[in-house]
């Protein structure tokens, strides 16, 4: 395993796509901080309060980006093992399929963490001097960051599974990117459905000079029972979690989220290794 990781990190260091992804994450971090500063300048010139733009809202964007960028990276980096045939030489010199799988997983997870770090470093380095300190308490920021990094690692596990089990690099890339966007949009949809109020509160409005009072009534779109449990379960999955993390900024990020991410990573890795062991390689 150590040998495979050593070889993998050497290749990572020489990988152009890795440096491009890292540069994109850092670049977006800088852009967000500068864009925030421009917005703050606009608000100031119009006499609005500075607090409308803070470093917080710029900082918490990175889980959206890390998953989206990680999907093509994992597909191309791991897919090259098949397209360039390197996986054959690893197996034919005696490395087990389990270690080949895990080494790729660790590399992809590391890249995920590095992508997050690149954004965080860039947004904080430029954002602090321009926008000032964050308003969210430090423990909440650290917990959010931890949850986001665990979720990115879980996504790396999902993408690694796809890339290892599919021998066609182009199909792998399409599958990983589609999955990343699907989970993101599913998260947005589930967030909207789960945020529906159970009861529309009593409303009063004036109509034709009369005060009309509408009594509180149940919301027909409110998701109930088993369906709500399923929706909530899906909403907790990595990818969909991105939206939930963003929605809980400033409040308490549920402690179950990293547990769900770890469970998803564990299950996908176990299934991936079992299937990979049985797979006929060309």
């Amino acid at each position: 395993m150590a040998n495979l990781l050593s070889a993998g990190f050497l290749r990572l260091w020489r990988s152009r796509s890795f440096w491009v992804c890292l540069a994109v994450m850092a670049g977006v971090g800088v852009f967000e901080a500068v864009a925030g500063w421009w917005a703050m300048m606009d608000f100031r010139s119009s006499g609005a309060a500075d607090a409308m733009v803070s470093l917080d809202s710029r900082y918490f964007i990175f889980p959206f980006l890390s998953g989206i960028l990680l999907s093509p990276f994992c597909a191309l980096f791991v897919g090259a093992e098949y397209s360039d045939g390197a996986i054959r030489s690893k197996l034919s010199v005696g490395h087990s399929r389990g270690t080949v799988y895990l080494s790729n997983l660790l590399l992809c997870a590391t890249v995920g963490i590095l992508l997050c770090s690149a954004y965080i470093t860039a947004v904080l380095a430029v954002g602090f001097p321009l926008l000032g300190a964050m308003h969210t308490p430090l423990p909440a920021v650290l917990w959010y960051t931890f949850c986001a990094i665990v979720m990115t690692s879980a996504l790396a596990a999902l993408f690694t599974m796809i890339a290892i089990l599919c021998q066609n690099r182009a199909v792998t890339a399409i599958a990983c990117i589609t999955l990343a966007y699907f989970l993101l949009f599913l998260g947005i949809y589930l967030n909207a459905r789960l945020s529906e109020p159970e009861i529309y509160p009593e409303q009063q409005y004036v109509q034709d000079g009369q005060i009309v009072t509408e009594a509180a009534r149940p919301n027909p779109n409110y998701v109930r029972g088993a369906k709500r449990a399923v929706y909530q379960f899906l909403y907790d999955l990595p990818g969909c979690q991105t939206v939930q993390l963003a929605a809980t900024i400033g409040t308490e990020t549920p402690p179950r989220l990293p547990l769900y991410s770890l469970a998803a990573a564990f299950l996908s890795t176990t299934a991936g290794i079992l299937l990979f062991r049985r797979k006929d390689l060309k």
Binding site: R11, D84, G85, S89, S92, G94, K282
Partner: peptide, 18 residues
Amino acid sequence: VRRRMGAVVETPSIYLDL
């Protein structure tokens, strides 16, 4: 034992970008 063996199966196992 496979460590005593070297193989080129179908196409050479080389990273094209290295």
